[in-house]
Design a protein around this nucleic acid. Structure first.
Lengths: 216, 216, 216, 216
DNA sequence: GATGAATGAGGTTTCATTCAT
DNA sequence: TATGAATGAAACCTCATTCAT
């Protein structure tokens, strides 16, 4: 039952997986303790379902939004925007998702890990594309340079994940803006660094992107 | 006892604060359950001590390393390096530190929050300096530019924290390199973005930094 | 469950509230430790329920027995008899009731205190009536006597409570007789003092009472 | 150490024997936990010492005060006064004494029980004397009546103890008067009953007593 | 004399879970 | 489909007590 999952997500978010008791969930959902067990065979399974549903939604939405967009930068920006949008709209779910990483054991854990890997791979692909694209754009200046190192990309992607996932730690809707604004800033930092928001010669690029995303 | 704190940190890291039981800690430290309570009046107090000690160490070491260094970029790189170095060397402690953010209530919680704020403020200062300094370097081209927006800096700093703190999630010593390597990459990303590791015109800056840090 | 309450009462009586552990109660009732907590949210709540039930029963039974009886002396004797009867039949409950006076905090404590006050007030009323009535009976000889002092009545009533409540300390069913016999003796002492059982001029009164209570 | 015993008495009184922990005692006395064990081999022994000291004092003082007084009524009044005086002056000690009746096991328990029995016997003697004396005074009216029954005396004495010991439950120094006043009232009730304070023909006796105690 | 350090046993309470209905 | 009743295990913590110093 989606209703139950939603409430459970909230509770897991507030108290953490270990900290949330089945009684808490029972109270939050209005369903009896035993009733919960009719639907979900264990607390762990509940977490599994939440994580699976959340992550699948993120990945699937992402794929839809990426479809048809070719520009490497825009694709990365879409990735970030998609992530943050979902994150902020379902911050509870994402918090659970991020935190309770290693709770699930066995098959369930493997399945979740698989979805996460899929998501990660998509991002790696986007970054690799951008890097390849970048070398084209920047033309001969990039001359005989080696291809973007896998290890470098890995670090970059995981850094990006860190930026985005850490948000649940500090985001205040009032002052920090919505997913759009945050995505732009984080995208700038990820792609061009602090200088991006600084006028250190990235103005043109940002303009270009702004134009693009306006159409988005 | 430092010995006990070290073991406790490990256990908290492995299982999380809620997930770790005092019995676990007892087993890990080799001290009796009651013995633990002789030294630490409660599980919460234990967490408090760990967090306090860890964070204070980080902040104090940072201040020492910053002392005498004037160059804004270098100062930011020192910040990152310091953070990651401690993070990787004491990944357990940092994990506990990062995660169990809202467990502590009352005075203890406030004290920890204060140290964290202090740390955060230092970083904000570094970034603001860099941004000011940047306008000088980039010369007249930056002419009538507005001052770096506080909100922008906030987002940037918190993004940096995210990058760095998320590490405990993915870092594999074998393949991901040490604090020095990671700090360089994350510094690049933070300051110049993906392009940094890409040869997109940041080469010179990186060289300069590399020279400096060689001396460091 | 009444069954559980009864067993719990016994245990509280034997070991006192502090001395009785939930494990003891679990053993005595045959119910699992966790089972107890299913019914009673805490040890304190258990004590509250026992005290409430016991005291209410005493007060309610007393009111029924007083209904319809007009003679002031008889009413006092009924009070004593009712108290002792319940006390001896449920000596455990009464012991708990009497002793664990200040354990309960907050609302629960207030509620119990209220019932006790109600009980006390009834007794005060009976004694005041008897004293008023007494002056009538003893006729003109008592002429300009002052009204019975509130303070005096208070001391008298509390002394009576002492006599009766202390019983759990020494009563041996074999040698000390049943509630009826004890009530008669304590009533005599309370109303006429040692002299009563002594033939010091109280014989007539006692005879009268004996006749009345025979019908009772 | 008397100092320690005094503090311990206070704590036992406030929290009861079971409820008071050795740590509480340590805190109250300012002596280390282990230090307490240097002086008293166990918590139980501590209780034993308190009870022994308290009871011995009561009994010995009583004997001194009874010495030389011959009038049976006065002797009883002295008993009551002595008891209440000590009780009110050392209400904590007496509370502990009264409550923790059955905690002590073995030799210690037997010793305390012996002192208590001694005390009880004294009172029984006083009452028996009074009754014998009384039958003489009341003259022929008492005709061929049997001697005061042992069982009757037992109940009477224990009732008196109840009256007196229950005091810790309700006594408020401000409104309830001091040991002298209370002893007079309780003496009246015990000897002559409610009527005593009522003017129901006991006035003369009370006057007599008043004269006697004035000399006391 | 007196204590800091340490402990095994046991305290109250809550946990995830089951099962008859 | 859903639940009230019940449980074994384990949670955090405190107990009276000991012992080397």
């Amino acid at each position: 039952m989606a209703e139950i999952l939603r409430h459970a997500t909230e509770v897991f978010c507030e108290k953490g997986y270990e900290g949330a008791s089945m009684r808490d969930l029972s109270r939050a959902t209005g369903m009896s303790l035993a009733g919960l067990y009719y639907y979900f065979e264990s607390k762990e399974k509940l977490l599994y379902l939440i994580q699976k549903h959340t992550f699948r939604t993120v990945v699937d939405t992402l794929r839809q939004r990426l479809a048809g967009v070719r520009d490497p930068e825009q694709r990365i920006r879409i990735f970030i925007h998609n992530h943050l949008e979902y994150f902020l709209a379902n911050s509870e779910a994402m918090s659970v998702l991020s935190h309770e990483d290693d709770v699930l054991r066995g098959a369930a854990g493997a399945e979740i890990a698989a979805i996460k890997r899929e998501y990660y791979r998509i991002c790696v692909g986007l970054v690799a594309d951008w890097k390849r694209g970048g070398s084209v754009k920047s033309g001969a200046a990039n001359g005989g340079r080696r291809h973007a190192n896998d290890a470098e990309i890995r670090i970059a992607v995981l850094s990006l994940f860190g930026m985005m996932n850490w948000i649940y730690t500090w985001h205040r809707p009032r002052t920090d803006g919505d997913a759009g604004a945050l995505a732009r800033q984080m995208g700038d930092i990820f792609l061009y660094g602090l200088s991006a928001s600084n006028g250190r010669g990235t103005t043109k690029r940002r303009k270009r992107w702004a134009n693009r995303t306006a159409a988005h």
